[in-house]
């Protein structure tokens, strides 16, 4: 089985992402990378919680005055749905349905872009209120944590778009199946981080 073998839905392996040695290595290496990402985000969450609502005396910004839940709710629903659409994309990959996978990944990308636009709108709104990156320890910790997540969304979008363009006319092979698979793992991980962000930053911020 080499990279150039053409497959049919009948001959397509059950786990195409882990048939070749390269695919197995990508799979393991990617989980190790996700472990590193977990440590990165833990340190950012720890920093945020340590510095939450801390700043110059008389600071008017706090989690309770700043955050608006309807926007966060919409962002959460968009990102959660995009996680399901990438599950659909991987379902079609396992069924060797190239068009189906392209379609669902494209929907994932559109939802990701919508999420990113809402986040940019939110940050822009805060900066207009005077809550800039350097305003306080709180604002720096907030923008670094949520901004790093936003950067991950942007990188994930770039990654999936490049994959779609580069492989647009290639169809499935054991060469590109692990690439799609790791990209979808990355996209789910972005959603895992967002679950913690909407809980710890926004919901617990509004509660107190």
């Amino acid at each position: 089985m080499d990279f150039n073998t053409k497959y049919t839905p009948q001959s397509w392996p059950d786990h195409p992402e882990q048939v070749t040695l390269e695919g197995k290595n990508k799979f393991l290496g990617f989980w190790l990378f996700l472990a590193g990402e977990t440590v990165l985000f833990s340190s950012l969450f720890a920093t945020y919680l340590a510095l939450k609502n801390k700043g110059p005396s008389g600071m008017e910004f706090s989690t309770q005055t700043l955050f608006e839940l309807p926007l966060v709710f919409v962002m959460t629903m968009i990102l959660l749905t995009s996680s399901l659409t990438s599950v659909y994309a991987m379902y079609h990959m396992k069924n060797h349905n190239f068009k189906g996978m392209q379609t669902w990944l494209a929907i994932t990308v559109i939802l990701g872009i919508a999420f990113l636009c809402l986040e940019i709108y939110e940050f822009n709104h805060y900066v207009h209120l005077g809550f800039t990156y350097g305003q306080s320890a709180f604002s720096t910790a907030f923008f670094t944590l949520v901004g790093t997540h936003g950067l991950h969304v942007a990188i994930g979008l770039g990654w999936i778009i490049l994959l779609l363009i580069r492989n647009a006319k290639r169809g499935f092979s054991l060469y590109n199946a692990p690439k799609y698979y790791t990209a979808s793992l990355y996209w789910h991980f972005i959603d895992v981080v967002w679950v913690f962000i909407f809980t710890v930053v926004y919901l617990m911020g509004v509660v107190g």
């Binding site: 393991l28 989980w31 977990t38 833990s42 340190s43 720890a46």
Partner: peptide, 22 residues
């Protein structure tokens, strides 16, 4: 198995960081 091992190692290390900072 290895995926879980990696992820839980990262989570434990991250949790230690979290306790230390706080």
């Amino acid at each position: 198995g290895m995926a879980a091992f990696f992820l839980y190692s990262g989570a434990i290390l991250g949790f230690t960081l979290f306790l230390t900072f706080l």
